[in-house]
Design a protein around this nucleic acid. Structure first.
Length: 1111
RNA sequence: UCCGACGUAGCAUAACGGUUAAUGCACUCGCCUGAUACGCGAGCGAUUAUUGGUUCGAAUCCAUUCGUCGGGACCA
């Protein structure tokens, strides 16, 4: 028996199938039953379980699931180890907020040990919820044995990888400028800086400081550079040059703007744009009134001079390029030390300089800016770091020593040192301008104090040294979409910077590097065994009693002291960037190389990975970088990066806006399959998805509803007929299948071919759409509709068996094809179909079948018949045209009509249509299809085929089109009689063949016609009395069927009918008694002058009263 | 500010540089139903975001501006 259902309930299907999968261990079997040697390798990017899963996770995981299930369906073994990302900043922050502590408290109010314990507990807090959504959405991944990045084995593999990189000379320790929060005592990641609210509008004291140039060989030209009075606009609006009044400068000051005056004591250079034009301006200092010659960018002169409360220009020089200033030395602005690590106090070039703000000259303090650092280094400039990590000036900072550069302590008596610096500069005549300035500046999101950029020691991976290799390997990766690989990822690789690996934090994998205090001795540990050996040596040399800590996290590992070449080594306190953790998963998930060495060859690299596009510079990169550096290999061969899931208005989902979609609610309401199908079929995964519940409803109704009804149709009649797909009586020869069966089977095989190719290409969206189209338009709406009668008429004939076999086979294959995307419903459908076969009547046996254990049968090319597909499309189009003609004349379909006329311009077309004429006749309720072959009788139209002809004639296309239009009749005649026509264009012969033009019949004189492209149909609208009678008979059938339905009769019930009606009705009933009786399963149909039944109105003002009863 | 993606009817999506920009949903009218929460026919609805260019021909290629989103940089 085929199970039947009242209505489709997808959430209920989910429940039943989940239970089934669990009971029969289907997931494991789908892996274990496949050959190890035939593996498809998938890597699961580890989510962090410290937050709730969102609908976007359902999206990302659906993509992963689809291709893994598809590969399983083709017979591959697809192991899917789950994983958890457990380290990192978000976890630290969560712990800190829950414990009510800050980073500063770690080690004082709370021990590092306890802190890490809290992190470990927090990180898996939502594991249960994650496991739940994973299960409910039907994502198959091994949750029993996941890799966890905080586990010792995982950490050991990470150490090993790092050591490989270290041994290749790809690691170094360096100094970089990083965002740093003195108030919190920690460096900040860019992630923290980008948190909402991090950038705040503040009003800062800004200073334009004057740097006094030294008069020497390099600068003498500047002192003697002539200035002249500024142009004065004359009455005509033109400019008149002022009189020459130049005299050499006594002093020249280069002026530079800063919003952070506290960096001025640490100034070591001034940066100019080499191509930017600068001028020397003679003016008076507005604070001291002294004569003053200053240098700034020409474009910015008007910004600082001539306005309200601004100095006036007394004279100005011709512009000169910035590169002339390069090399000029100046006096240190504020007294203090000179740098020991390079030159200082001279003008250097930098391409980052703009004339958007300030003076076009950048005050450069390499310790406090990334650009400053870079440009300083490039020009041999040293640095001064006159601010300590608490955010106060060091003892070297002269009169400002000991003062906080910002109010980090919430000191009620805090006096802004920036203001004092400004006042001081005014006093000594080195301030050109002091003003308040509103701008947005990053703040530490937790302490709400301004961040400062500070030089911090870091460990780097020299990724830039292998960027060519990374690019080359990247070229072999199949990116979906391609543009992410070549563009976002590829371009980024080309301009790759070194990877800043270290993080000054507590909860993460410690850097396995130990160093002597002087930095001359250094060791990188690559395994626990190595650590053991090193510890043994240190114990011996230093007389200690250390052992390898049970937990490799801080603080235990920090206590380990090593020994090398007579020196004591202590661990570098930093942790490894958590991105390195996740990039290590191909190896660390198997504890490679300490275990699973054999297995590793089989599971590296991955055939397929998928994540959100935001992982491009995250996981996609770290996998690629480690794979390249350690194994000189890609880590993955195919990668799908999906876009964002937005709300239905295209806004980002966020808890704050309340527009976040709860994945549990969605799946509970609509079922996992409708949700998955919607997300994949609606838009390509890499385009952003505007998530709209109405879309899911549509999918549920239109696709799943139709499919379910198609199945129910089969089930209804198959159960009546006891159809058994496994019965040998049903095994038929190909010749037993009629045209329509062959057609749908041809389409089915074509579909299989298309869908398979699309899945192979990691392109699921068109695959879904193709399946949808097949189910809706072809299987349900055409095949089943055409074949209804075959299922319910009479007893089991060969034709009926063929219909059952065909529909059954289509549904079974659809179940397989859709199973990667809609694993639940596909499973139910498959089991219902398989379970109905004899021999599967034992329920356990039937249920043990699973579509996910099946192997997709290959395409049967012999069943693909393109010619047949063409024929059927003619049938559909002609039917559609005929129905449209009926509509125009208000001739309802139940009214039979005599014939349609179809002009046939060639024999091929006529043969094609003849083959499907029966289908057209039954679909449109007409009796004959007649062909018109008399060419002269038809009116034809001619259009050039632009695509073909355009290639041939190129730019003369327009003329050719006009020419063809003017000679339409001749061309048609020529092509129809001789196969070609010759036109003359500019004295040249132009030969047109049949493919160069499109000929269509447009009209049949004297008939009402409709046309669609090259097909034209005319309908004979004459209703003869005989036809009218038949029409009435069909009306009666329709009414009686409705009554049967209203009375809830079974479709097999026999009935008796008594009828009373107008004379036309009674005549029709008499004439078509046999027909009516067969149609409605009536044992008797009698005319009765006194019927007590339902009174009905029929078309043409006819009436009838009907009484129907069961036999 | 830089880099990238995207912008087609009320909504969601199509359209190897080629004829009148297609399909589904929604809406209106009609029809069909012995499977259907289906379907069929007709209608409604688009300056293909903008401006310019290349081309015989542009939704498609190039450039521009605007908008949405993402990634990065910077705020001296």
């Amino acid at each position: 028996m085929f199970p039947t259902y009242d209505q489709l309930n997808l959430p209920e299907v989910d429940k039943q199938i989940l239970e089934f999968w669990e009971k029969h261990d289907v997931f494991n079997r789908s892996i274990e039953e496949r050959d190890v040697e035939n593996s498809f390798v998938f890597y699961e990017g580890p989510p962090s379980a410290n937050g709730m899963p969102g609908i976007h996770h359902v999206m990302a995981r659906t993509i992963k699931d689809i291709f893994c299930r598809y590969q399983t369906l083709t017979g591959k073994r697809v192991e899917r180890k789950g994983g958890w990302d457990t380290h990192g900043l978000p976890i630290e922050l969560k712990v800190e907020s829950e414990l009510g502590i800050t980073k500063e408290d770690i080690g004082t109010k709370i021990s590092v040990d306890d802190y890490n314990k809290a992190c470990k507990e927090t990180v898996m807090r939502f594991k249960g919820v994650w496991d739940d959504i994973t299960k409910k959405m039907g994502y198959w991944v091994d949750l029993e044995n996941p890799y966890v990045t905080y586990e010792k084995e995982y950490m050991e593999s990470v150490w090993w990888l790092l050591k490989q990189i270290y041994d290749k000379g790809l690691m170094y320790k360096g100094y970089t400028i990083q965002p740093y929060s003195p108030a919190a005592g920690t460096g900040l990641s860019s992630h923290e800086l980008n948190m909402p609210g991090a950038y705040q509008d503040v009003s800062d004291t800004t200073v334009v400081a004057m740097f006094k140039t030294k008069k020497e060989a390099a600068s003498s030209w500047l002192f003697s550079l002539p200035v002249m009075a500024p142009p004065v606009e004359d009455e005509d609006g033109g400019a008149a040059a002022g009189a020459m009044g130049s005299q050499d400068s006594n002093e020249v000051h280069i002026i530079a703007w800063t919003t952070t005056p506290w960096t001025l004591p640490s100034n070591t250079a001034l940066t100019v744009g080499p191509k930017i034009e600068y001028v020397k301006v003679r003016t008076k200092n507005q604070y001291t009134g002294e004569a003053n010659d200053v240098v700034l960018a020409k474009e910015l002169v008007s910004k600082w001079f001539g306005g309200h409360n601004q100095p006036t220009i007394e004279a100005i020089s011709e512009p000169f390029p910035g590169e002339k200033l390069v090399g000029i030395s100046y006096e240190q602005l504020l007294e203090g030390p000179s740098p020991t690590d390079g030159d200082a106090f001279r003008v250097i070039p930098g391409n980052f300089v703009t004339t958007d703000a300030g003076t076009g000259i950048v005050h450069t303090a390499p310790s406090f800016g990334q650009d400053d650092m870079a440009v300083g280094k490039a020009n041999g400039i040293g640095s001064l770091t006159l601010v300590d990590k608490q955010g106060k000036f060091t003892d070297d900072a002269g009169q400002f020593a000991g003062r906080y550069v910002k109010d980090y302590k919430n000191d009620p008596d805090y006096k802004d040192v920036n203001v004092d610096i400004a006042i001081h500069l005014k006093t000594v005549g080195l301030a050109f301008n002091v003003a308040k300035y509103n701008h947005s500046y990053p703040h530490c999101w937790r302490t709400d104090k301004p961040v400062l950029y500070y030089p911090l020691d870091s460990w780097f991976i020299k990724a830039s040294a292998v960027k060519e290799r990374m690019s080359a390997l990247n070229d072999t990766i199949n990116w979906q979409p391609e543009s992410t690989g070549t563009g976002r990822f590829g371009k980024w690789l080309e301009n790759l910077n070194d990877w800043n690996l270290s993080r000054s934090r507590y909860w993460g994998i410690p850097l396995p590097i130990w160093r002597s205090e002087c930095g001359t001795e250094e060791v990188c540990i690559g395994s626990i065994a190595e650590l053991q050996t090193a510890i043994d040596l240190a114990n011996k040399e230093l007389g200690l009693d250390q052992s390898v800590p049970k937990d490799l996290h801080r603080p235990y590992i920090d206590e380990v002291v090593l020994f090398q070449n007579g020196k004591k080594l202590v661990r570098e306190l930093d942790l490894i960037d958590v991105w390195f953790d996740s990039g290590s998963m191909p190896y660390a998930q198997w504890h490679y190389p300490f275990e699973n060495k054999d297995k590793f060859d089989r599971v590296f690299p991955a055939d397929f990975i998928a994540e959100g596009v935001d992982q491009t510079r995250g996981w996609f990169y770290t996998l690629h970088a480690i794979g390249t550096m350690v194994f000189d290999s890609v880590a993955y061969k195919n990668v799908v990066s999906n876009g964002l899931v937005l709300d239905k208005n295209g806004k980002k989902m966020s808890k704050r806006l309340g527009n976040a979609v709860d994945p549990f609610e969605t799946i509970d309401t609509y079922g996992a399959d409708a949700t998955r199908w919607y997300m994949i079929s609606n838009a390509n995964p890499w385009d952003n998805l505007k998530f709209n519940e109405e879309g899911i409803q549509e999918v549920r109704r239109v696709f799943f509803g139709t499919l379910h009804n198609t199945y129910s149709f089969l089930a209804l009649y198959a159960n009546i007929d006891n159809y058994d797909p496994a019965d040998s009586a049903n095994s038929l020869k190909w010749k037993d299948y009629p045209e329509i069966d062959r057609w749908i089977l041809s389409r089915l095989n074509t579909l299989t071919k298309e869908v398979t190719a699309l899945y192979e290409a990691y392109d699921a969206t068109p695959a879904c759409r193709a399946i949808e189209n097949f189910v809706n338009a072809e299987l349900s709406n055409w095949y089943v509709r055409q074949c209804r009668r075959r299922f319910w008429k009479g007893e089991m004939t060969t034709d009926k068996r063929a219909a059952y076999n065909t529909l059954y086979g289509c549904l079974l294959q659809v179940a397989r094809l859709m199973s990667p995307v809609a694993p639940f419903y596909a499973e139910q459908l498959y089991q219902n179909l398989k379970g109905a076969a004899a021999g599967a009547s034992n329920v356990e046996g039937a249920m043990a079948n699973s579509v996910h254990l099946d192997i997709l049968p290959g395409v049967d090319e012999s069943q693909i018949d393109k010619d047949l597909e063409t024929r059927m499309s003619y049938a559909q189009r002609i039917s559609s045209l005929t129905l449209s003609l009926r509509k125009a004349d208000n001739l309802r379909v139940r009214q039979p009509l005599q014939k349609i006329l179809v002009p046939a311009t060639d024999a091929d077309f006529q043969n094609h249509v003849t083959a499907v004429a029966d289908i057209i006749k039954s679909e449109t309720n007409i009796k004959e299809v007649e062909f018109l072959t008399d060419g002269d009788f038809l009116k034809k139209s001619l259009k050039p085929n632009f695509r073909v002809l355009g290639k041939k004639v190129g730019k003369r296309m327009k003329d050719v089109a006009a020419l063809i239009g003017a000679n339409a009749d001749a061309v048609i005649k020529g092509i129809e009689s001789a196969g070609e026509a010759t036109l003359s264009l500019d004295g040249e012969d132009l030969i047109l063949t049949a493919e160069d033009v499109l000929i269509a019949t447009e009209d049949i004189p004297g008939w009402k016609v409709a046309s669609d492209g090259e097909i034209t149909v005319a309908l004979d609208v004459t209703v003869t009395p005989e036809l009218a009678k038949e029409g009435l008979a069909r009306e009666l059938v329709n009414r009686i069927q409705n009554i049967r339905k209203d009375l809830d009769f079974e479709v097999t019930d026999r009935i008796r009918v008594r009828l009373q009606g107008s004379s036309a009705v009674e005549e029709a009933a008499t004439a078509f008694k046999a027909y009516i009786s067969t149609e409605v399963l009536a044992d008797s149909l009698v005319l009765d002058g006194d019927v007590d039944g339902e009174a009905l109105e029929l078309p043409g003002e006819e009436t009838a009263t009907l009484a129907v009863s069961r036999v």
